[in-house]
Amino acid sequence: MQEMETKLDFIVDTAAGYHPLDPYLNMLDVHGIMVLVGFPSEIKLSPISLSIGARNLAGSVTGGTKDTQSMLEYCAAHKIYPKIELIKINYINEALERIIKNDVKYRFVIDIENSFK
């Protein structure tokens, strides 16, 4: 993460559990913005992480069912698809190990339909 200090303009933080924010804020360039869309139970940060570089921390909700449906329809109409790695349920332990090792490029999606054939 030190290699990335002051390299990013924008971070979307989707984590819902507690995690320190300072290492991520330090990756923001001057006037960079970090937006929390997950709902961690608590947040802790050093004010210097915001003050140095005039960084910003913001929050946002992702919208309700109507907004989500509208977004899905837009994506379908414009052929915008998520990048995922489809895995079978019996690969879950390996997937967790890869998460721990930071060896994940896309979101894992479990293929339940084909996992039990």
Rank of each mutant, 00 (worst) to 15 (best):
P47F: 02
V61C: 08
P40H: 11
I87S: 09
N90A: 14
I87T: 12
E97T: 05
K88M: 04
E42K: 15
S51K: 04
I99W: 03
I92Q: 07
L36N: 01
A15G: 14
E113R: 15
V104W: 11
H78M: 06
L28H: 01
S60K: 02
A77S: 15
P20C: 10
D103R: 11
M27Q: 09
D67L: 14
S60L: 02
E5R: 13
K7D: 06
G59K: 06
A54W: 07
V12L: 15
D111M: 10
G53L: 03
I112F: 14
A16G: 14
N90D: 15
M71G: 00
K101D: 10
I48M: 10
T68R: 01
A16V: 15
K7A: 14
I48Y: 04
S41T: 05
F10T: 03
D111A: 06
I89Q: 06
G64F: 12
R107T: 14
H19R: 02
H78N: 15
I84P: 01
M27L: 15
L45G: 09
T6V: 00
V61F: 11
I43C: 01
S49I: 12
P23W: 14
I92K: 01
V35M: 07
K105E: 13
H78Y: 07
K7N: 09
A95L: 04
A77E: 11
I84N: 02
T62Y: 04
Y18V: 12
L21Q: 03
I110W: 12
F116R: 10
H31F: 10
I11E: 12
H31A: 10
G17H: 08
N56A: 04
V35D: 04
Y24K: 06
S115G: 06
I52K: 03
Q2L: 06
S46V: 12
N93E: 13
L72N: 02
F116K: 05
G64N: 09
V61E: 02
A54Y: 08
D67C: 03
D9G: 14
N93W: 00
I52Y: 06
L36K: 06
I99M: 13
D13G: 02
N93H: 10
K79N: 15
I100K: 13
V37S: 00
S49D: 09
S46L: 05
I112W: 08
G32N: 07
S51G: 06
S49H: 02
I99Y: 03
A77F: 07
I110V: 15
A16Q: 14
Q2R: 07
L21F: 15
